[in-house]
Simulated assay, not measured.
Amino acid sequence: MAEATIRIIASPESWIEQAAVDQLHQTARLPGIDKIVGLPDLHAGRGIAVGAAFWSRTHVYPHLVGSDIGCGMALWRGSMPLRKFRLDAAERKLRGLEDPWSGDHAARLADAGLPPMLMGEALGSIGGGNHFAEILRIDDVKDEALFASLGLDAGFIYLMVHSGSRGLGHAILERHLARHNTGALIADKPDCGAYLAEHDDAVRWAILNRAIIADRFFDRLGMSGERMLDICHNSVTAHRCGWLHRKGAAPADKGLVVVPGSRGEMTYIVRPRPDHADASLQSLAHGAGRKWSRSEARDKLARRFSIADLERTKLGSRVICEDRDLIYEEAPQAYKDIHQVIRDLHQAGLIDLVATMRPLITYKTRRA
């Protein structure tokens, strides 16, 4: 059986670990997989490389999407002018966000076309791992005309939310694995249709969750917000008479994309270019990509830095993370160079640079 074609979009200056490349080759041997693209943030995952896209004419593989179906990044422009924003006051106000959301779960779920009892208790929660909410400001406008045409404005604060479908996506994948292990679903068969229906519900749930998280943050900060974009980087979608799986890969066919670095680095706003998009399976890097595993990060950094050290970044931003392990696991040092990732995408002709954003407060979890 022939192995799928693999293309890795990364310059010689980028570090790509061999374990991630090996995982791509393992996936390339799956029945029905035709094309694979690894992006500059490529890194090894739990059996599946993260920062990659996989295309098949006839097969759907739920384990290539993973358990956090619908995970993605959304960006809002806040109504508060940057000149009125006070960092200390904002940090103090961001409390109570681990408590259950007190809004009308059933109504919001129904508005999103979802069953009114679907995982309502988890709505409005960020979750663990690499998920976060971050308050930012525009740092550097790369293309003034493009920036203005997109409705962006450097005079306001912004909120970025990275979260997904929480336990819903996990339950969907576990049900599939119990029936089929990591086997494929044939696209026109009932089992595949049932999975895709659940998958699409999880994507809608994740989009709604990001919106409610934003509502909660803006409520604490005493303002409103306008959503500028929402992109999903864990999904499977119909594409070119086949099925495109993205695992930690942002879509290049849905408009503007945010590509965040670590919590101590810039986030880029980019516009995908159509010229070479087919060569990248209509996908872009979704972030910087991990350099160290979680255990490596804890072991290496706990000896060098205190918790207080990691609550401030080299950019002067604040980090709210009252989980001792998580603050080490998600430290900036554990991630690759976001500027190199963006250079690789730009040199490959995949993006136009719009602006960079500087973090002010990165929020992960607060105990009380």
Rank of each mutant, 00 (worst) to 15 (best):
T267K: 12
T267D: 12
Y268D: 01
Y268A: 03
Y268R: 00
Y268V: 04
Y268G: 07
Y268W: 15
I269P: 09
R271A: 14
P272C: 02
R273T: 05
R273Q: 10
P274F: 05
D275E: 15
H276W: 05
A277H: 09
D278V: 00
A279L: 15
Q282K: 07
L284S: 09
L284T: 03
A285Q: 09
H286F: 07
H286L: 12
H286E: 09
G289Y: 00
G289L: 03
G289N: 00
R290S: 07
K291V: 06
S293W: 10
S293Q: 03
R294S: 05
A297N: 10
A297K: 08
A297F: 14
R298W: 12
D299I: 11
D299L: 10
K300T: 02
K300N: 05
K300C: 08
K300A: 11
R303T: 13
F305P: 07
S306V: 01
I307L: 13
A308Y: 00
A308K: 15
L310H: 10
L310I: 11
E311Y: 09
E311S: 12
R312K: 13
K314H: 12
L315Y: 13
G316T: 06
G316S: 10
G316H: 02
S317H: 04
S317Q: 12
S317R: 13
R318K: 15
R318P: 03
V319R: 12
V319M: 11
I320C: 08
C321L: 00
C321P: 04
E322H: 12
E322G: 07
D323M: 00
R324G: 01
D325A: 13
L326H: 02
L326C: 10
L326F: 00
I327T: 02
Y328G: 06
E330D: 05
P332D: 06
A334V: 02
K336D: 02
K336Q: 13
K336L: 09
I338S: 11
I338H: 14
H339P: 00
H339L: 07
Q340V: 04
Q340R: 15
V341Y: 11
R343A: 10
R343F: 08
R343H: 09
D344L: 03
L345H: 13
H346C: 02
H346K: 15
H346Y: 04
H346T: 05
Q347H: 15
G349P: 09
G349R: 08
I351R: 07
